[in-house]
């Protein structure tokens, strides 16, 4: 057994997912490529969104992948960190906004 759940070298093996289900695997990668292609949003903007989401969902593979992708695209560390704070703000805000539910419940139950 591996000593850790995550092995950085597994990222390189992502493509092997198709080996156990070629049809669904290929459909996924085709969809993935289409999502990240130039569109109404540039591929550069999409890379920054992916980086922010990678942190929100705390996917170490995605963080490695989109930090590297950002460097390749010439995205600066300031841009990367700002994107990250957008993710962190939404995540923090999502926790905090539930406070309204708490307040509603508290008020309902209190005299």
């Amino acid at each position: 057994m591996e000593k850790t759940y995550y092995d950085p070298s597994d990222l390189k093996k992502f493509g092997k997912i198709v080996e156990w289900d070629e049809e669904l695997g290929n459909k996924f990668f085709e969809y993935y490529s289409a999502v990240f292609a130039e569109g109404a949003l540039s591929a550069r903007e999409k890379s920054l969104i992916a980086l922010a989401v990678a942190h929100v969902i705390q996917c170490p593979y995605c963080i490695d992948a989109y930090t590297g992708d950002g460097l390749k695209r010439g995205i600066s560390q300031e841009e990367m960190m700002e994107a990250l704070h957008v993710g962190a703000a939404i995540r923090g805000g999502a926790s905090l906004v539930h406070g309204v539910q708490m307040m509603n419940k508290y008020n309902k139950l209190s005299m």
């Binding site: 591929a43 550069r44 590297g68 460097l71 390749k72 695209r73 010439g74």
Partner: peptide, 19 residues
């Protein structure tokens, strides 16, 4: 000439040129 400042490959030449 742009060459990456680290252990990564250069991105798309045209995109970087625009930037």
């Amino acid at each position: 000439v742009y060459n990456p400042a680290g252990a990564f490959l250069p991105g798309d030449q045209f995109g970087l040129e625009q930037n």
